[in-house]
Design a protein around this nucleic acid. Structure first.
Lengths: 339, 339
DNA sequence: CTGTTAGCGCTTTCAG
DNA sequence: CTGAAAGCGCTAACAG
């Protein structure tokens, strides 16, 4: 379109002057405010003027006036985990659809409690999605007391915090067990992360419960992490146990990768000598050796639902607990086989 | 610390009233404004009042008044790629150190051009870091014309856009070649992504140049992507070529993983029958089968440098081209061996 | 259908 | 060392 833009950014007053109307009318028309019924001629003039000047409303002014910044905060433990990437993606997409911006915070350094409180206390964001296990329950409860209408837990539940969105983690673990049982495995192992993470608690519960239900012997190992290293060491521990399992469930995708590595190092063939199922799917599953059987959970949708819940809170709805209904789905690849 | 906080968020006026001074003085003292020299008694009263009320400055008001939102925008192609995760991490950390917030945008949907222009045009962020290859050079040039002091390219260079930060991609590729050559390989293959990505162009240049310099025969394959699938298909193509290589360089980490998978499927043992080096390292490298030799590039530092450059632009410095000086480092694992 | 008025909460002159 | 006044750009009543 036109040449070099003007020095100063165009304001509402500039648009109003150019269109020959009052600023407030411009505001109403440009926002499609119901009270902004202008003659279609005027509307047209305003629209054209705004376009010609490349007008963009100033978010700070708008936010100050309306006390709505049209932004959500997302607190992540980091960017590395594939699940959190998926969640972030889902959050971003839905927030965008709903016209909201996304402010990201991780908390590798500094006091996470302070940092996140600030985002909403300073009015930078209208609500906060907490998708991190690192903040203690205690801190979260204190937080929600101060910000009851603007805190949503993602992939986590904490007693005393009503607004949360989780997946069917327990069902996913049960499905993994069922798959293995159907293949004839009777002695099934599992590597879980620490009990301080409630996803781990729920997955573990589903695992143990389903084993019990089917009359199988669960061989559970709890590690202090849930990354590749934890999987590697957990697999070794399983192998060294009295009566090692013939099949294993990995609490997370990285854990599964670590286990694959450990089995290879110990000369245990997968799936011939050991079947492996991962909880949560990942794009790389198709390119591992062997291709990894997984239980897919809708992580991106988890993020989207969290956004919806947060926006409903902003609109005054009561906090509630959401379980994303999509059932876990088994994606059978080459890391599992009949006993 | 005390009981339930007040209904309404405390404002500067509230603090001033409680401390018995004028709001403007509170503002100056709390910001350590040089013109805010107050008697240490007054300072103390103000500080205490602010603390007691749990005062937090309103970012919208502050931003409106000072036209500095203390926030940076980061435009990513998505959250999936490990390199972009690392960049995001570096950006977030440094921005935080410098007191800046981080607004994330991806652009799976919608017109990316519009979306990013808006972030800064609306004053939501003070500058934009573009770490995405998906926006066309043309669009970027147009953009920088309108926002000369607030656009920084990350991991990318575009003619006409002065502010950019990149890594020593070319040197990394050369280092990979050198490593392979030292192991006695003479016929070295490589799988690169599309030439539309300038990282690919630079890595390819380094690869070809170093091969030539050492008198080796480069066998280059260009794919339309740079993910696992591209690596898989690229490896197959290399294998089917007349006179296949004995060693390969992968343009990205995911490409290397895809190649590993393809070699396994074709019964080509790594490293016995084929050596593999990846450009860029990743935490999972130690858990692949075999453990993957990589050339590490400081992706997180790339993000940090981009933040520094952006803030310098905001402060009025001239745009400049930064090459993160850290030399690429070979991390020798088990996917490469002497011929 | 359109204009007026007021003010969100803060920073920034300028006085004193 | 501290106070007063003005206003950033916008939206939200209320008039007309």
């Amino acid at each position: 379109m036109g040449g070099a833009g003007p020095r100063r950014r165009a304001t509402l007053a500039d648009v109003a002057a150019r269109a020959g109307v009052h600023p407030s009318l411009v505001s109403r028309v440009l926002r499609n405010d119901p009270s902004g019924y202008a003659s279609s001629d005027t509307r047209e003039r305003i629209r054209r003027a705004a376009l010609e000047l490349g007008y963009r409303a100033n978010d700070a002014a708008r936010g100050l006036r309306s006390s709505r910044m049209m932004a959500l905060g997302l607190l992540l433990p980091g960017f590395s985990s594939p699940v959190y990437s998926a969640i972030a993606h889902g959050v971003e997409e839905r927030a965008d659809e709903r016209g909201y911006g996304l402010v990201i915070g991780t908390h590798a350094a500094g006091d996470p409690h302070e940092a996140i409180t600030d985002m909403v206390m300073r009015g930078r964001v209208d609500a906060l999605l907490v998708a991190s296990g690192r903040i203690e329950d205690q801190a979260l409860r204190r937080l929600v007391r101060r910000l009851p209408e603007s805190l949503v837990l993602v992939n986590r539940q904490v007693k005393g915090v009503a607004a949360s969105v989780v997946l069917r983690d327990s069902d996913a673990a049960a499905l993994a067990v069922r798959h293995l049982a159907e293949l004839g495995h009777r002695r099934i192992g599992a590597v879980f992360g620490p009990r301080t993470l409630d996803t781990m608690v729920r997955r573990r519960r589903g695992f143990v419960h389903e084993c019990t239900r089917l009359g199988l012997e669960p061989v559970v190992t709890e590690m202090d992490g849930r990354d590749h290293g934890a999987g590697f060491r957990g697999a070794l521990r399983l192998l060294d146990a009295a009566g090692p399992p013939t099949a294993v469930v990995a609490a997370t995708f990285p854990v599964a990768v670590g286990m694959l590595s450990a089995f290879h190092e110990r000369g245990v063939a997968v799936p011939a000598g050991m079947s492996v199922v991962s909880l949560h799917d990942d794009a790389v599953a198709d390119y591992l050796v062997p291709r990894l059987t997984t239980v897919m959970l809708p992580a991106a949708r988890l993020g989207a639902e969290a956004v919806d819940l947060a926006l409903s809170l902003i609109d005054g709805a009561a906090p509630r607990r959401v379980v994303v209904p999509d059932p876990p789905r088994l994606i059978s690849r080459n890391s599992t086989t009949a006993l």
